[in-house]
C-alpha cells in the first residue's frame, strides 16, 4: 500500500477533494499505467495532463524528431527542443512537471512485430497517431490483447474519438472495417489542423484514461464523439458491436496482426 507524502496530499488535493476520486481514486491513478502512442498533437496534452494527474507509469512511443512545423500544436515540445527526439523532449517536460511519474520512452514506430509486447505492460492505451495503418494496428492489437484504448482522429477543425473496451464494446473496425484506400486520404499538405483542436481531442482522451483508472462515470464506449470546432457542435453517435465485425465478431477473419502499407505523407516532418 502506497502512503501519501505531505507533498503528494498537497499536489493532488484538488483530485482528492472530489467525491468520485478521493484518496482511493488518486491511489488508483498513481498505480495506473497508461501508454501514449504518438507524442504529437493528441499525445502532447494527454502526456502533460496524465503526468500532472500523477499516473504512476506513462509510456510514450514516437519515432520522430521535433520539427518547427510541430510547434503550432504539439504543446509538450518547445522551440528549444528542435531536432530532439519527441520522446526525449516529452520525457523532460513530464518529469519536470511531476517527478513522481515514471516515464518509459520508446523511440520507435509501432509495428505488427513489436506492438503486442509493448502494450501488454499497460492498463490503457491512447492512440495519438496520425495515420490509418497505425490506428488499425492499435485497434487490432488492443482487441487481441484485451487492453482498453482511446481512438482519436483530427482533421482541419474537427475531431473524433471513441473508447474501446475489448470484448465488451464496439471496436474501431465495427464501424470502419477496412482502412480507407490510400488515394482517398487527404495528404497532410491538403488537410491542415487548427492547433487547439488537437488539444481538445487529446484532453478528452486523457480524461477517458483517468476515468478508466478510477472506475468512475461511464466511458465513451459504443459511441463516436465528433466535434466541429468551427460551429462548436459536439455530436455523439451510438455505435454497436457487430457480430460480423472482421476483428471482434463471432467469426473473425483477422486472426493475426499485419502491417498495412503506409499512407503516403511526403510532407516534410
Amino acid at each position: 500500500m502506497i502512503s501519501f507524502t505531505d507533498q503528494q496530499l498537497e499536489r493532488y488535493s484538488r483530485h482528492i477533494i472530489l467525491n468520485n476520486v478521493g484518496i482511493e481514486g488518486q491511489l488508483k491513478i498513481m498505480q495506473g499505467k497508461v501508454l501514449i502512442i504518438g507524442v504529437g498533437g493528441l499525445g502532447s496534452p494527454a502526456a502533460l495532463y496524465l503526468a500532472a494527474a500523477g499516473v504512476g507509469t506513462i509510456g510514450i512511443v514516437d519515432a520522430d524528431k521535433v520539427d518547427l512545423s510541430n510547434l503550432q500544436r504539439q504543446i509538450i515540445h518547445f522551440t528549444s527542443d528542435l531536432q530532439k527526439t519527441k520522446t526525449q523532449s516529452a520525457f523532460e517536460k513530464m518529469k519536470a512537471l511531476n517527478p513522481d511519474v515514471h516515464v518509459n520512452t520508446y523511440h520507435l514506430r509501432v509495428t505488427a512485430e513489436n506492438i503486442r509486447e509493448i502494450i501488454r505492460d499497460y492498463d490503457f492505451v491512447i492512440d495519438g497517431t496520425d495515420n490509418f495503418p497505425a490506428k488499425f494496428l492499435i485497434n487490432d492489437a488492443c482487441v487481441m490483447e484485451g487492453i482498453p484504448f482511446s481512438h482519436g482522429g483530427i482533421l482541419r477543425f474537427s475531431g473524433q474519438t471513441m473508447t474501446v473496451v475489448p470484448a465488451e464494446s464496439a471496436c474501431y473496425r465495427c464501424s470502419f472495417p477496412e482502412p480507407p484506400p490510400k488515394n482517398a486520404v487527404p495528404t497532410c499538405a491538403e488537410a491542415g489542423i487548427l492547433g487547439v483542436v488537437a488539444g481538445m481531442l487529446g484532453t478528452i482522451q486523457a480524461a477517458e484514461a483517468l476515468k478508466y483508472l478510477i472506475k468512475q462515470g461511464s466511458l465513451l464506449t459504443n459511441a463516436l464523439l465528433t466535434f466541429d470546432a468551427l460551429k462548436m457542435d459536439f455530436r455523439k453517435v451510438a455505435l454497436r458491436k457487430r457480430a460480423d465485425c472482421p476483428l471482434c465478431g463471432e467469426n473473425p477473419t483477422i486472426l493475426r496482426l499485419e502491417d498495412i502499407e503506409q499512407a503516403v505523407c511526403e510532407l516534410k516532418r
Binding site: D64, D130, I154, S158
Partner: peptide
C-alpha cells in the same frame, strides 16, 4: 442515417 467519417491525421 449517420455518416461516420474517417478522421486520421494531418497532425504530424
Amino acid at each position: 442515417i449517420d455518416f461516420l467519417y474517417f478522421m486520421g491525421g494531418g497532425a504530424r
